[in-house]
């Protein structure tokens, strides 16, 4: 399988070229264009119940799609929001993705849904996380550009800017300083990451876009 990421960071896309017998798994509905006679098969992620949870709590589609082609062909995928597409090769390690970040993977990657704890329900994002592990290629997407931050110590992050992080990092959900700032700062809850590891931050959020657009609506 060959892959190419095009158009980053303005409007990133993933193009995958499959040989005969090879397959690729993507988020449902992400295909933009593809070779003729491509074979699609829908799959559930980790069983029926988890798929349903993922759909309603994680904001992702319940089904994943497996693509293959008898003689070889190509598929181009687009995330729902414009921004950056990222690639990460997993070699037995894992990566945690937030809501809506998963785009696609090779078939040897394991995906499982993890509940982030009751507190995470109030954080808006990240109540359900997708843990990606195994060996293979993982692709995920972000709204806007992406900054990769190496945390060594502590970092405070607005919840909706988090796309993914390495499981070597610990986090707790907190407010912005005092009660007044937590309630009125417009930041809501933040995530305090600690430890050593990488975190992927997106430079725009859908909530931010909605908030900015609201005064113009009629």
């Amino acid at each position: 399988m060959k892959h190419e990421i095009l158009g980053n960071p303005d409007y990133g896309q993933l193009s995958v070229e499959l040989g005969p017998g090879e397959s690729f798994i993507s988020e449902g509905g992400a295909m933009a264009w593809m070779s003729d006679r491509m074979e699609l098969e829908s799959r559930m992620m980790g069983g029926f119940i988890k798929s349903i949870i993922r759909k309603f709590a994680g904001g992702e589609s319940a089904f994943l799609v497996q693509y293959s082609h008898p003689t070889g062909g190509s598929v181009t995928f687009s995330p729902a929001t414009p921004g950056t597409v990222l690639h990460r090769q997993l070699n037995g390690d894992s990566l945690i993705l937030t809501k809506g970040a998963f785009l696609g993977c090779t078939s040897d990657i394991n995906l499982s849904v993890k509940f982030g704890g009751w507190k995470s329900l109030f954080s808006g994002e990240g109540a359900f996380q997708v843990v990606c592990s195994g060996t293979g290629d993982l692709f995920f997407n972000a709204y806007g550009a992406v900054l990769e931050k190496e945390v060594n110590g502590e970092l405070t992050v607005d919840t909706s800017h988090v796309v993914a992080w390495e499981p070597t990092l610990d986090y707790r959900i907190g407010g912005m300083g005092g009660l007044k700032s937590t309630l009125l700062s417009g930041e809501g809850l933040v995530l305090n990451f600690s430890g050593t590891g990488k975190i992927y931050l997106q430079t725009r959020t859908l909530g931010g876009l909605a908030g900015w657009l609201s005064p113009y609506l009629h």
Partner: peptide
């Protein structure tokens, strides 16, 4: 399968000529 895959209806272009496609889907 088409419905479950989230793709539903697609367009099949045949013949010879240029098509200009956009990377993202506005209604999505």
């Amino acid at each position: 399968q088409s419905f479950l895959s989230g793709e539903g209806i697609v367009l099949k272009f045949t013949g010879e000529g240029k098509v200009y496609v956009q990377s993202h889907n506005p209604s999505e």
